[in-house]
C-alpha cells in the first residue's frame, strides 16, 4: 500500500465527514488535519502490533483535539469525531457481518475480535486523554479558589 496516498485520502475523507457532521467552518481544516495526522502515525509508527499503533495514534488525536479545543474555544468532540474515522473499524465491522452471513465461522470470530479490540483501545485512549484533561481543569479551578491545600490535607 502506498503510504502518502492513503494519508492524503484520509485527509479528504475526514474533510468530507466534517462537512457531513456540520463542523463549524473555522474548525473544518483542523478536524480534517487531525484525521490525516492520526492515520500517518498509525501507518508509520515502527510497532509490530496494529492495535498498539491505533492506541498511540488515538492518544495523539485526543491531545491534538484538546489543544485545538482550547485554541478555537469549541468542544473537543468536534475534532475527535472526524479525526478517528480513518482508524475506526468500520471496514472491520462490515467484514465481520459479511463473514457471518456467508457462514464462515472462523473468519467471523477472527474479524469480530479484532474489530472490537480496535474499538476498545481507541475508546480507552480517548477516555484517558479526556479524563486527564478534566482532572487538570479540576485541579486548576480548586487552586484558584485557594482550596488546593485543603485538598491535599483534608484534615486541617
Amino acid at each position: 500500500m502506498n503510504g502518502w496516498q492513503t494519508v492524503l485520502a484520509a485527509f479528504i475523507a475526514c474533510f468530507g465527514f466534517s462537512v457531513v457532521y456540520n463542523v463549524p467552518k473555522k474548525s473544518l481544516l483542523f478536524s480534517s488535519l487531525g484525521g490525516a495526522l492520526g492515520w500517518a502515525i498509525c501507518l508509520y509508527l515502527p510497532l509490530e502490533s496494529e492495535i498498539a499503533r491505533c492506541f498511540l495514534a488515538t492518544l495523539v488525536i485526543g491531545v491534538y483535539a484538546e489543544i485545538f479545543a482550547r485554541i478555537l474555544r469549541q468542544p473537543a468532540t468536534l475534532f475527535i469525531l472526524p479525526s478517528v474515522l480513518p482508524m475506526v473499524p468500520g471496514g472491520g465491522i462490515y467484514y465481520t457481518f459479511q463473514y457471518a452471513l456467508a457462514g464462515d465461522a472462523a473468519l467471523f470470530t477472527q474479524t469480530a475480535s479484532r474489530t472490537f479490540a480496535t474499538a476498545g483501545v481507541m475508546a480507552i485512549a480517548l477516555l484517558l486523554v479526556s479524563s486527564a484533561t478534566r482532572l487538570y481543569k479540576a485541579v486548576v479551578t480548586q487552586r484558584k479558589k485557594g482550596e488546593w491545600k485543603k485538598c491535599l490535607n483534608p484534615r486541617k
Binding site: 473499524p89 468500520g90 471496514g91 465491522i93 474489530t115 474499538a119 476498545g120 475508546a123 480507552i124 477516555l127
Partner: peptide, 23 residues
C-alpha cells in the same frame, strides 16, 4: 464497495459505544 460503504458503516458509533460503556 468497501470505500463507498464507509458512508453507511457505523464505525464511529462502535467507538462511541465503548466510550460510553467505559465512562
Amino acid at each position: 464497495i468497501i470505500g463507498s460503504l464507509m458512508l453507511l458503516v457505523p464505525g464511529v458509533a462502535l467507538t462511541n459505544f465503548m466510550r460510553n460503556l467505559i465512562a
